[in-house]
Structures are given as structure tokens and as C-alpha cells.
Design a protein around this nucleic acid. Sequence first.
DNA 1: CACCCGATTATCT
DNA 2: GATAATCGGGTGT
Length: 197
Amino acid sequence: MRAYRPLPRRFYERSSVVVARELLGKVLVKEEDGLILAGVIVETEAYGGPEDPASHAARGRTKYNWPLWRDPGLAYVYRIYGVHFCLNVVAAEKRGLGSAVLIRAVEPIEGLEVMMRRRRVGNPRLLTSGPARLAEAFGIDLSFNGWDLTRGEVLYIAEGREVPDQQVVSTTRVGISKARDKPWRFYVRGNPYVSRR
DNA sequence: CACCCGATTATCT
DNA sequence: GATAATCGGGTGT
């Protein structure tokens, strides 16, 4: 019996805004040769298709963003500022719409020692409280671009705990210059691993 | 080819 | 608060 149950593809076959909200409380899992890393998703952001100027889909298809136009449930990993990686999961009512959800923060629950070694920090709060921080802690790089997160192998997202609406905060997205009015960032109120800003 | 900007973070002052 | 890290993608000469 598996420790974590991967979310089925149909979970991701909804609008990215709905999926971003529903991903709160789910578990990001990485399995590397028996080593297990896991963290509860506590912060996400929804990005639309080409009609959302803040989305990478607005650039049209490029060498790296091709997963955005493939099946919901695939990972879209990109390099940012030349030095970091960020993890998205493709989410849309149907294939080809270009929308996705950025995983911005998780609360680490398994594999803390390995994460601390990779991140070279002692304070647990600095391990995974930001999209590039969690990518480094989990060892996520461009080799996972296009990875199918529904297969339950190596890197996937699993069932977790329900987060009641009362604990969910919706605000505008972080770090963008276009379409700044959309309230498509979601996080768990009071969780210490939510990224600061 | 040159230049600018970016879904970020660590490390200064 | 300011800056460097320096890759991917867009734009303009």
C-alpha cells in the first residue's frame, strides 16, 4: 500500500482558479530511491491562458512552455531570473487552453533533513516558503518539465486534508506587473510557510 | 547583435 | 532598501 494517493487527472480538469483553491491541503511528494520528501501545499496562484497577460501562456508556445498546451495534470517547470526553478501544474477544463497553477509554498512534513542540506539553511521556515525555495528543497529542475503528476511516480501530488473556506485567503498575485488586479493567489491563513510579501 | 525584463532569493547596507 | 545571481524570451537596430 502506498503512503500517498496521487490525485487523478480529472482533479485538474477544471479552471485553474478552482484547482488553485482546491490544491490547498494536498500533498506534494517526491520519491527518490526510497527517500521520501513531502509537504502540504499552503499557497498557490492561478494563471490563465493567452488571455491572461501575466501568464507564460501569453508568450505563445516556446521551447519550454509546451506543457501548458498538453494534458491537465502535467508539470510545467520554468527557470526564473536565470537561477531558480518554479513548479506549476497544468489545470484547465480541457487540453490546450494554456492555464496552470503555480505552487508557491508547502509545509514540509517528511524528509526535512534532506531539504535542509539542499537548501543550506537551519531555519525550517526557509525551506519551502516560496516557489523557488520549495523547488530547490524537492530537487525540482527542468528535467521535470512535462512530468505527468498523476502517475504517482517520483514526483506527484497526492490527497491530503480538506482546508475549510474559513481558513482560505484570496489575494492578488505576487511579483507580476500585468493583470495585477486578479485575486488569484490562495493561501492558508496563519500558516508559517506561506511566502512573505 | 544589443538591450530589456522577468510568476525569485540571499546577502549585503 | 538595493543589488547580484545570469537564463529564457521578446523587441529593435
